[in-house]
């Protein structure tokens, strides 16, 4: 059991998303930074599909009401346990009665916290992800509030043995980090001026030559009104060579659509299932975790790659993640 002493800015339960219901208009949701979500689960011996806490910008204060094995992945929000800095991207044994809080944002924007055994959250439509607009899923369909208590489920025998070892190594301390840490190619922070790789969107060719050129060369700034649904990109206005109205079609995580005012919107985890605005580009899946870690005010550049490159990059990443997961799993055997 975990007690939320202070909720922070916005902390929600997320998983890999609510798939299978888009044809009924149900928004997918799920972790914005899928890699950080999956890795945090694996570090505590959970399957990738288990719920994690998605913590945004200003973290919560959490009191552990029993011993726990946790992992924090994603951005660096300067986590402290009982006042001592604690490392991200590795398993951490935390003693009953200890308090986790977060300091000033160092890098990134969102951090994922997994707990061994998983949070005990009833799935809605086969997913525990929170979709705030429809008050769907997660913890009572909402972000965490002060005083909430999260139950956790018992970890497996193998995970329990790791906890026993760390409890022993912990001695009188509040917590004990395990010795290994995830390699840096999955953990590198996002710097301002980050390049985001994109492929041509379905309506790319209908934009003016100047707009396409501006899109590929000029910087765009993340607007402060951005949320889990999408982020508005402030930069040169993008215009089309045609007035034809589009018929609504499916859109995806990472679709960059351009409403009539010319300001592009990058669609994120809580995007609608369909849209009727022209799509200039599509962010490569491998760069979506970078996008998830951008904060308002940051500048990005777009770099055009082919659809083929984008798909092979995804395949390569998945292979490397599988290797990482095999490596992590070996620590539990």
């Amino acid at each position: 059991m975990l007690k939320v002493m202070k909720s922070g800015l916005m902390t929600t339960i997320q998983d890999l998303g609510r798939h299978g219901y888009q044809k009924e208009g149900v928004v997918v949701s799920g972790a914005m930074d899928e890699v950080a979500h999956r890795v945090s689960n694996r570090l505590v011996g959970n399957p990738s599909s288990f719920p994690t806490l998605e913590i945004t910008l200003m973290g919560p204060v959490i009191e552990f009401e029993e011993d726990a094995l946790i992992a924090l992945c994603g951005g660096d929000l300067a986590p402290l346990i009982d006042g001592h800095p604690v490392d991200s991207w590795r398993p951490i044994f935390v003693r009953k009665g200890c308090e986790l809080r977060f300091g000033r944002l160092q890098t990134g924007f969102r951090v994922y916290m997994a707990v061994a055994g998983g949070y005990d959250i009833p799935p809605v439509m086969h997913s525990t992800s929170t979709y705030l607009r429809a008050k769907l899923g997660g913890y009572k369909g909402r972000a965490l509030e002060d005083g909430d208590r999260l139950s956790t489920l018992s970890p497996s025998e193998e995970v329990y043995r790791v906890m026993e070892r760390l409890r022993h190594e912990c001695g009188d301390a509040s917590f004990k980090e395990d010795r290994f840490r995830v390699a840096t190619d999955f953990t590198h922070p996002v710097e301002s001026g980050q390049t985001i790789r994109v492929t041509k969107g379905t309506e790319y060719d209908s934009f003016s030559t100047e707009s396409v050129q501006a899109f590929e060369t000029e910087p765009f700034t993340i607007n402060s009104k951005s949320d889990r649904m999408g982020c508005r990109l402030i930069g040169p206005a993008l215009t089309r060579q045609t007035d034809e109205d589009l018929i609504s079609e499916a859109v995806a995580f990472g679709t960059i659509q351009v409403p009539t005012d010319g300001t592009p919107i990058l669609l994120l985890a809580d995007r609608q299932t369909t849209g009727g605005y022209p799509r200039i580009a599509q962010v490569a899946t491998v760069d979506l975790p970078k996008v998830a870690q951008l904060k308002p005010g940051e500048d990005i550049h777009f770099e055009l790659i082919t659809h083929e490159q984008s798909q092979w990059l995804y395949v390569e990443r998945e292979k490397r993640l599988q290797q990482l997961f095999v490596g992590i799993q070996s620590k539990f055997n």
Partner: peptide, 29 residues
């Protein structure tokens, strides 16, 4: 993974890794 029918289209979401395991040619996108 799932599909979305619209006025004029159907969009199918798929798992590229599952397809590579099924495909006889690993070079085929």
């Amino acid at each position: 993974v799932e599909y979305i029918p619209t006025f004029t289209t159907v969009t199918m979401y798929y798992d590229p890794m599952k397809i590579l395991r099924k495909s006889t040619d690993p070079e085929t996108l």
